[in-house]
Design a protein around this nucleic acid. Structure first.
Length: 260
DNA sequence: ATGCCTCAGCTCCTGAGA
């Protein structure tokens, strides 16, 4: 297995693959990445558009459910050792898909939203984050070259928030969520986006309402964490805002990392 | 403002997203 071929990996919360499939295929044609993880496919496995994706030159592993959640891992070469959800963590939501692609362990995840800091969903988010961390510890021992990417539903710091004063301590911006993010960093990973100089007010999600995208009122909540072993290979990480300008866009836009 | 927009579905309203 060649572990030093140049690669591009990307993540995109598509907010319904049924609606966004043409945009995903267009984006892949323009951005022929080696692997792409999707979140919020919102479709059951029997209805997953496997053939259309294979016709575009990608292998795909997927794990979905009706109405909510759902994740997929698209790759030029087949992913091996595919895992769905966090082993040992009972969960009725399809949030995680992992596989090894060209020697890199790729974990795609749709982190819980959490709704509000005083809600039951926030308690679930904290439990899920703890289970994820424990599992990533194991994964790193087996796969030092690892990428954890997806919709984290967490802002890393106030640079990721369009109005950090108004949104202080609200969902995605709480101390507890950010501590969980830092716990993942402490395992020996790096926020690939911040390894490079970036424009101020760079976000990956904008509300559909109030012309939030046009006014750049967004959050950076979609992230790519690269392991210590992979960090020397990282040559770029960008947020591609172009798909957010499409007709009927997802509210999230892709994030792409380039490995030398 | 418990709103705004978008999506799925037990679809003409509701729940959830973030």
């Amino acid at each position: 297995m060649n572990t030093s071929i140049p690669m591009q990996l990307a993540t995109w919360n598509v907010n319904s693959l049924n609606v966004r499939l043409p945009q995903v295929l267009d984006w892949l044609a323009a951005n022929p990445v080696d692997a792409l993880v999707l979140q919020e496919t919102k479709t059951t496995d029997d209805k997953f558009p496997k053939e259309a994706i294979e016709a575009a030159g990608y292998q795909v592993a997927f794990f979905g459910q009706k109405t909510y959640n759902g994740v997929a891992l698209l790759s030029r070469t087949p992913a091996t050792d595919v895992v769905k959800n966090i082993p040992g963590f009972e969960d009725d939501m399809a949030r995680v898909i992992a596989g090894t692609v060209d020697g890199v362990r790729v974990i795609g995840a749709y982190f819980p939203n959490g709704q509000a800091p005083d809600s039951d969903k926030f308690v679930y988010k904290m439990r899920w984050l703890e289970a994820l961390r424990a599992w990533v510890v194991d994964e790193l021992t087996r796969h030092p070259q690892l990428v954890l990417m997806g919709d984290f539903n967490i802002t890393v710091d106030d640079r990721d928030v369009w109005d950090p004063v108004a949104l202080k301590d609200t969902i995605h911006c709480t101390v507890e969520e950010r501590e969980h993010f830092q716990a993942l960093i402490q395992l020996g990973t790096h926020d690939a986006f911040r390894l490079f100089e970036q424009a101020e007010k760079s976000y990956s999600w904008w509300d559909y309402r109030e012309f939030a995208f046009r006014r750049n009122r967004g959050l950076r909540i979609d992230h790519i964490l690269v392991s210590d072993a992979l960090k020397p290979r990282v040559s770029a990480c960008v947020i591609d805002k172009a798909p957010r300008k499409n007709e009927r866009p997802s509210d999230h836009t892709p994030v792409v990392v380039t490995l030398a």
